[in-house]
Design a binder for these strands. Structure first.
Lengths: 364, 364
DNA sequence: AGAAATTGGTCTATCGATGAATTAATTTTT
DNA sequence: AAAAATTAATTCATCGATAGACCAATTTCT
């Protein structure tokens, strides 16, 4: 009782209650108190009750630093992201937190920034696993990674459409396949002149067909690959260069420029923020979506389903990605995963209101 | 050398290099190695060089758990947020990270969810400061806090427009004053019939004038207080109930309903997401912003400045808030802050393209 | 030169919790 | 009832880094 008062009165962490205090007051050894705390070993019901009572009365909280040190494990995972302000990344973070929670792990989030030189490489190099048991890193689009960046000696799983040279576990969605699927979907729903927004460079077929990395590039590749396959030769004017940031504003700006300068009956936005902007620009121009122009995005961010009309988009598979990544990472930590693998998923189109309804008897 | 090979080959954290290894190979005591690591105590330049070399060669990384345990400090701060997917919160998180970085602290981010019963109270109760030295908590809008929720014995700073009963440090912007200012701004720029979107209940003057909490309530109060002051009696139809989530979609939905049902010449959205939706709805209806209708938001989220036209909004003061909160929290941790205080700031309007330019010779 | 001060570094105890080994107490078995 | 088995709780060492006391060697001062 008095003890408790003393603790409450203290400022900061001075005089924290330790297991030793608990043990003394409960009249047992420190180890017994520890056993009760961890539901470990054998003890009488009475002892358990007494110790639990004391723990509660004293407001005892386990010292994580000491526990982690002794155990060599933290049951924390670190999630590193380039930033938090991109909707996709914020949602990824929440999904990873939920997945980790299901496995009884806690997530520590870090951002590493997208500057040049990017901190991603430094992070991989300096990652210190004594605060957490492993690293889950979402690779940014701009850093130029080298194979040896991925030669690390701690549990790690990479996310994102970047090449990890087969050195570490890597979870990604098949951006190319998804983009191809999006194109097929639009074509299957009557689109004939599809504008693609979100490209970062001038459209140059030769150059763009090179294999490359990053969502922008891969999604564009997917579009072009599918175009090839169906024998459609894209009009360069329909693939305008878009501002580097995939924001609502840039989506509406590039769409406005498109309107009136070149005819099109569909817009495929390389992510949902761009699509939201495109939707605004189209409606502002008096074009009806999906009657005059169909619209499709990528990633299915939270906002998308609330738009009017709700946005047809490509599932980001965040649920699968986060669950798989977490499982895989924990596998490494707990020693059941062996050699690095790349796991890929293909997403499906989430049909909503910005594309035309399926024609009866038709499916895709 | 051989040591290093062994380490690289190991999986997981087995066989981590410790200071003891460094000391042995460098031919010094563990304490000397520690001194070099921390730039502490005195040592010859040669010793320093040798130890640093060994540290580098062996790829030694300090064990944070051990260090934290011994020091009783982590130089980490925990930032707890209800979620990450609200743009304002994501930006707040980034700003806090930056502020902490300036003070040489690292931030661990946690989300506590907005469920019922909310985890915010549990978090406050169970917060364990052995992973970090203090807690910075952004209070959600829905939890019903009681005074004793804030009787805690660790360093903590609260953020957000909620009552903390004067028990802990609390940083907030003056939502009422800001809203009043927004109204004044619109009136000063020619608006006469201002629609306010984002209210969560039917407009009922009597009820709304009660003192309450949360951004929605406070901002609405500010509007009404200012209305009172200038002798303007708001038309209830101009303060429609808006879907609970402050999303783009709800902003456009409520605005669309407004259009045609009641005349107005300005929209004051209680946050920027709503404003973005409103902008889309207005333009879709063929109304010009700001010529036909002026529009203003709250929070100045990242997207806002990229819209077309860019959104006039109220500064969220995230920079000030995060810097102040971090400073204050570190003050508690390092023992220089004494009694709990509430620090408030008033934001200013960021004039951009969705409101009319200042009339010459006029200012506000 | 001898005392005092400085420099460079070592030794020991310790942060708090937990695993392994061990002892003490009780129950079960034959 | 004695031996074997089980249960309950204790003692001891340890995770890795660091604070503080301490010692040895060198430099500085008068």
């Amino acid at each position: 009782m008095e003890k408790r008062q003393a603790v409450m009165a203290g400022t900061g962490k001075a005089g924290r209650v330790t297991l030793k205090d608990v043990a003394r007051i409960a009249g047992v050894s420190v180890k017994t108190a520890s056993n009760v705390l961890n539901d470990d070993g054998r003890m009488s019901a009475k002892t358990r009750r007494t110790v639990k009572r004391v723990i509660h009365d004293l407001g005892y909280k386990r010292n994580a630093a000491a526990s982690n040190l002794k155990r060599g494990r933290t049951r924390n995972l670190t999630l590193a992201l380039p930033m938090l302000t991109a909707p996709y990344l914020a949602e990824l973070a929440e999904a990873v937190i939920a997945a980790a929670h299901r496995h009884n792990y806690t997530v520590l989030i870090r951002t590493y920034g997208v500057g040049t030189p990017s901190d991603a490489r430094a992070l991989l190099r300096d990652f210190n696993d004594s605060l957490s048991d492993g690293l889950l890193i979402s690779l940014d689009e701009t850093t130029r990674f080298k194979p040896r960046d991925f030669s690390v000696d701690y549990p790690v799983v990479a996310l994102g459409s970047r090449d990890t040279f087969g050195r570490i576990d890597h979870i990604e969605t098949d951006d190319m396949a998804n983009a191809a699927q999006a194109v097929r979907y639009l074509l299957g729903h009557g689109a004939r002149r599809i504008a693609v927004i979100g490209s970062h460079k001038d459209f140059n077929p030769a150059e763009l067909r090179l294999v490359s990395e990053g969502n922008a590039e891969l999604r564009l590749h997917g579009v072009l690959a599918e175009a090839d396959r169906v024998g459609w030769t894209p009009d360069p004017r329909l693939i305008p260069t878009t501002g580097y940031e995939w924001t609502i504003g840039n989506g509406s700006a590039v769409t406005s420029r498109l309107i009136g300068s070149v005819p099109f009956d569909a817009v495929l936005a390389l992510n949902d923020s761009l699509a939201i902007g495109a939707l605004a620009a189209l409606e502002a121009a008096g074009l009806s979506v999906p009657d005059d122009v169909q619209l499709m995005g990528f990633d299915d961010i939270y906002e998308s389903k609330y738009l009017h009309p709700a946005l047809t988009t490509v599932d980001s598979q965040i649920g699968w990605i986060s669950e798989t990544a977490v499982t895989r990472l924990i596998g490494q930590i707990e020693g059941s995963v062996t050699s690095p693998a790349t796991l890929m998923t293909t997403a499906s189109v989430i049909a909503r209101g910005t594309t035309r309804p399926d024609a009866p008897g038709q499916d895709d």
